[in-house]
Design a protein around this nucleic acid. Sequence first.
DNA 1: TGAGATGATTCGCT
DNA 2: AGCGAATCATCTCA
Length: 431
Amino acid sequence: MDDQTRMLAGLAGLGGLSQGDVGDPDSLRKQLGQPQQDIGDILQQIMAITDESLDEAQARKHALNCHRMKPALFSVLCEIKEKTVLSIRGIQDEDPPDPQIMRLDNMLLAEGVSGPEKGGGSAAAAAAAAAAGGSPGADGGIEHSDYRAKLAQIRQIYHSELEKYEQACSEFTNHVMNLLREQSRTRPISPKEIERMVAIIHRKFSSIQMQLKQSTCEAVMILRSRFLDARRKRRNFNKQATEVLNEYFYSHLSNPYPSEEAKEELAKKCAITVSQVSNWFGNKRIRYKKNIGKFQEEANLYAVKTAVDAASVSAQASQANSPATPTSGSSGSYSLSHAGDAAAAAYLGLHPSNLNGAGEAVLNIASSLQPQVDTLHRATHLTAGYEELTTSSLYVPRRLDPSNSWQDNTQPCSVTSPPGPPGSVHSDTSN
DNA sequence: TGAGATGATTCGCT
DNA sequence: AGCGAATCATCTCA
């Protein structure tokens, strides 16, 4: 074996070159103009070198590095590798971006998982609500905030994992680059080859990233479907909540349109969302108007209930020696109009012409309450609070006109100010 | 199991 | 944006 062949084998062995690195040894030999040599021979040479002790190997390595033919061979090898790398790069660079990754990226961006922080993906949550057909003016209810919280959690996990992958990728790339730089002393490694290696590493890591993105998308999809399912599900409000809502409705029968503040208060009392309160009143108004007769009994019962409350308020006010100021302590709150309106509704609803299944018991209760109700009425009219009551943002008087629609009514509402003597008054519930 | 009750959604209007 | 009206979907109860 001549020096050049031995050196070639030595370089390949020491540098860890594979066929993939430098191409086919036969073609290499042809390019170097070397005679055909048995591959077994080369392998034997390699084995002989690896069998040597470290000192011997170092000495041999040194000898090879100092060989007069080394620079020439090195440059030839570099040239061959350059061509190989370029041809591979040429193919790879033309690869279009993976459409699946693009799809995943777009989706994560749309869902608010990737991209800039948008309040924990509130935009996506709103979009989800819209996609689910959320009622106009959805107020960010329980489900909405739940969705946002869960999405934020997914976002956090996604970013933390992504950061880990990027860090690992960067560390590994640096490690490989250092290794290659180190090896470039003993074997031909061009900068382009290093670039290629880096690209390979990045591709490997991006495939891991794709899996992460895919998993994240799946998680978001599952979350969204659960969120939508939850919206579809319906639970009846508990008895107490229904009572509170009905009390308000029947005590404001002349104007069952709670203001935003009143809705919020009701929502808080009933442990439901403002949207649900709006829905409830919307449904109630429609259903009440459609079948007033059916709701008469319910109206009577709630009227009595609220009248009792109102009377007790009145009694307390009397006891406090301030009968002319029944609004004290509740100014601005819906209970202000609640008291007066309820008292009026009580005796309006209990007029014998309006009585049905409620029975005489209700009438008796009403009769016993009548003096207190009348007192309350007078008080309501006498107090300066009356102005506030009827013009308050919480109370925009309307009435249910003959065409079955509540109309704006700037005059004091008929319920709080009955036009006729008791017993011959008009009643909202009689429509 | 079916009818009625009820909360939610959708659509058009103002 | 808020509302009425119609409708859907689910729950409740006999």
